[in-house]
Write a protein that binds this DNA or RNA. Structure first.
Length: 420
RNA sequence: GCGGGGGUCGCCUAGCCUGGUAGGGCGUGGGAUUGCUAAUCCCAUGUCCGUAAGGACUCGUGGGUUCGAAUCCCACUCCCCGCGCCA
């Protein structure tokens, strides 16, 4: 949600953003509805004022045991008119909210303008792409020959894009989670394991309407949705709260499974466990003062880079262009890891500053002193590790000539082995 | 799932029975007073509309009764206590 004042004072700024994102949005309709709703507020406020004045008079007369019948008759007609207007107001308010909830976030000035991923900008790279002196295999091949993943039975039991992890891959999955949590704890992040199902109003705080269709699973007959990432549950943690600024920034290490419908991804990445309906993730989520959020954003990215250097995965950092940017984010870096089996870099991390967009939706504010106007804070989120994709990268990059997988040094003590 | 108790401004609390402008304390900021500090006293302290003056709203949420609801009625929700079931 954007600052409603922007809608009135500078709609062109919003128009520019929509253009840069190449998004169709009924901006004029929103501006019009905002006008309607404000006019209605003024009219109902006036009527209420009148009613309150008469009500005080009624009370006074009754106390003095005078006749108030005439006034009460007036009250009756005001109340009648008011309830009609209120109905109209509620309807207008709902219409306004519905449209404004689907309005995407503003874009930071450093974001390159461009229509899709082809205009993303490479910021830097790290590590050497491995060179093999044997014929390499992709991760699907490796998981089948080493009996690490059962896709056929998962398809039978749950459907496409599900999987059974088996044997040492189960341990690798746990090791990545454990290492990630230790790593963030050392940096004073607060570990938090979230609810995996949350209600609609919480979900609406973190995502935009279209995502309900494309990514989010709903529990039939309940006001419950499976989280697409712990970000959704952590963001809503402090909804409707005013946070004492001396507690900022609040840095959480969220851990949870992630559930995604992947609607519209038919045919893409069908192989193996790269694009799946369920995976585990450790996530950085930060509540920050507005003036500190851009530094915080860079800090989160540097933490991500340190992590992947420790597990020795070659990567490059991409700055997403306006057309590829998520609707709730003002600026996003992706980390793309080298995947030998696909001979390309693939996205495994997304690091975003959502500025005050989620905070407005969730009413998360802060202040320095208790007599001060509270103001919206900024929220940021970044993957630390999404296990399925990171395991794909590890398997493909660390494969050995004899068809096994070397375990990155830092994970060996967690998994209790140096080869899979 | 059943029975009982509860949810009031950032925090704590009064008001609810008996309907008529939501009061007090803490915290925080400002001011007064005072060698300094402390204590004391005064003012401010949520959201929305409005350039402003000002006004409206706000008592877990949503309905209802009433001229008028924090207060009465109904439903839902969350927390606490007891019982039941249960990994």
């Amino acid at each position: 949600m954007l600052d409603p004042k922007l809608l009135r004072d500078n709609p062109d700024k919003i128009r520019k953003m929509l253009e840069a994102r190449a998004v169709n949005f009924p901006l004029d309709q929103l501006v019009e509805t905002d006008k309607e709703r404000r006019a209605l507020i003024i009219r109902t406020d006036e009527l209420r004022k009148k009613r309150n004045e008469i009500s005080v008079e009624v009370a006074r007369k009754k106390k003095a045991s005078e006749d108030a019948a005439k006034l009460i008759e007036q009250m009756r007609s005001i109340s009648e008119e008011l309830s009609k207007l209120e109905e109209l107001q509620t309807e207008t308010e709902q219409r306004y909210t519905k449209i404004s909830l689907s309005l995407p976030n503003l874009i930071h000035e450093s974001v390159p303008i461009g229509k899709d991923e082809s205009t993303n900008r490479e910021i830097r790279g790290w590590g050497k792409v491995p060179i093999f002196d044997f014929k390499i295999r992709d991760h699907l091949d490796l998981t089948q020959s080493l009996d690490l993943v059962d896709l056929e039975r998962a398809a039978k039991v749950a459907g496409a894009r599900f999987y059974y992890l088996k044997n040492k891959l189960v341990k690798l999955n746990q090791s990545l989670i454990q290492f990630a949590l230790d790593f963030l704890s050392d940096k004073n992040y607060i570990p938090v394991q979230t609810p995996y199902l949350i209600n609609r109003s919480s979900m609406e705080g973190a995502i935009i309407a279209q995502d309900f269709e494309d990514v989010i699973y709903k529990i039939d007959g309940e006001d419950l949705y499976l989280i697409g990432t712990s970000e959704h549950a952590v963001a809503a943690m402090h909804s409707d709260e005013i946070i004492d600024s001396k507690n900022l920034p609040i840095r959480y290490a969220g851990v949870s499974p992630c559930f995604r419908k992947e609607a519209g991804a038919h045919g893409r990445d069908q192989k193996g466990i790269f694009r799946v309906h369920q995976f585990d993730k450790v996530e950085q989520f930060v509540f920050s003062r507005p003036e500190e959020s851009w530094d915080e954003h860079e800090r989160m990215l540097s933490i991500v880079e340190e992590f992947y250097q420790k597990i020795e995965l070659p990567y490059r950092i991409m700055l997403l262009s306006s057309g590829d940017l998520g609707k709730v984010s003002a600026k996003t870096y992706d980390l793309e890891a080298w995947m030998a089996g696909q001979n390309s870099y693939r996205e495994i991390v997304s690091c975003s500053n959502c500025i005050d967009f989620q905070a407005r939706r969730l009413k998360i504010r802060f202040r320095d002193r208790t007599d001060e106007q509270p103001q919206y804070l900024h929220t940021l989120n970044s993957t630390l590790v999404a296990t399925a994709r990171t395991m794909v990268a590890i398997m493909e990059n660390f494969q050995t000539k004899d068809g096994h997988i070397a375990v990155p040094k830092i994970l060996q003590k967690y998994i209790g082995a140096n080869i899979i």
